[in-house]
Amino acid sequence: MKQQIIVNDLGRIPYRDAWDLQEKLLREGTDAKAAAREAGAGTIPQTRHHLLFCEHPPVYTLGKSGDMDHLLVSDADLAAKGIQFVQTNRGGDITFHGEGQIVGYPILDLERFYTDIGRYLRNLEEVIIRTIGEYGLAGERSKGETGVWLDPSIPGRARKICAMGVRCSRWVTMHGFALNVNTDLSYFNNIVPCGIQDKSVTSLQKETGRTLPEEEVRARIVHHFSEIFDAEMVRGALFPAGADI
């Protein structure tokens, strides 16, 4: 029987508010698993899977192992530009979130899929690789660098189109991926994206030469998420009426 994943669109939401919601859903999952363990063998945890989509106002986020030196502007500059800065508990280094970017936060109980974080990250990458492939782009992985890239093995041409960073507690995941669709890439000039010095950042808009409908891209992500995770995607209460999933 396929797992069900509840898909919701939070719209434009401050980063910290989305983080709080993720933490709440993660705690619901871990609490359910703890209750099942206390009830004894044979008790099935009542966990639910979620995929949250959103867009954030401009914000730089730093992963728990990130380097503050990769933020290249001062607090005063951030305030003047209207950009927030948040230190997070996800993996990875520093990245940017903002308008024109599709951010996805899967909150999954991996024990109901597989218990392998490496496989989970490769599957998230595959979702994005298949999605951008529908726009004629050959997404690839770069050894030792999580995310989705274009031309990662060609010096001077390697560029990242989707950043990823996750956290997992008792096999329940949070945080996720950020796909640059129509993103203003100039924001990345203020950081060393993902802590990688010699590779640039790109977007679907830049690569295709046209502005793309973000609802269409999101629907394709959901389709490929269903394929890769062999799951049934169901509309949540926060998903816009009439929008495709």
Rank of each mutant, 00 (worst) to 15 (best):
R119T: 10
E227N: 12
L78A: 11
R37T: 14
N180T: 01
F239V: 02
T208W: 09
E111N: 13
G156D: 09
C162P: 04
L26W: 05
F85W: 04
E23N: 10
L137T: 04
L121I: 15
H56S: 13
R90C: 06
F113T: 00
S203W: 06
T131H: 01
L137Q: 02
Q205E: 15
W171F: 10
E28M: 08
H49L: 05
I117D: 01
R235K: 14
P193Q: 12
T88R: 04
G98A: 10
V234A: 09
E126K: 05
F85P: 00
E111L: 11
R37P: 01
V222G: 08
R90Y: 10
K81V: 02
D77F: 06
I6Q: 09
W149S: 03
M68K: 12
A32Y: 07
S203H: 05
E214S: 12
Q3M: 09
R130M: 10
T61F: 03
G11Y: 06
A39S: 13
A18K: 06
G118C: 10
E140M: 14
A32D: 06
Y120K: 01
Y60Q: 01
R167V: 01
A76R: 11
G133N: 04
G29M: 05
R170W: 05
A219L: 08
K199T: 00
G242T: 05
P14I: 04
Q22C: 08
P58M: 10
V222D: 01
K160L: 03
G63T: 03
R16D: 09
D75N: 12
P213K: 14
R210P: 03
G98P: 07
W19T: 00
G82C: 12
R130W: 08
E215A: 11
L212F: 12
Y120A: 02
L110C: 02
K33P: 00
Y114T: 10
A231D: 00
S226E: 15
A243I: 09
V217T: 08
D20W: 03
P240L: 02
E55K: 07
M68A: 08
L150P: 00
T30Q: 02
L26C: 04
G133E: 00
A32M: 06
L212A: 08
P193T: 13
G165Q: 08
D20A: 07
D244Q: 15
L204K: 00
L52F: 10
P213N: 15
H97Y: 11
T146I: 06
Q3F: 01
I13Q: 14
A241L: 12
K24V: 06
D75M: 06
A32G: 05
P152H: 13
L121R: 00
D67M: 07
T115S: 13
A219Q: 11
R119V: 08
Y114A: 14
L150V: 10
H56I: 11
G144S: 01
S74E: 06
L72S: 12
F229T: 03
N190S: 13
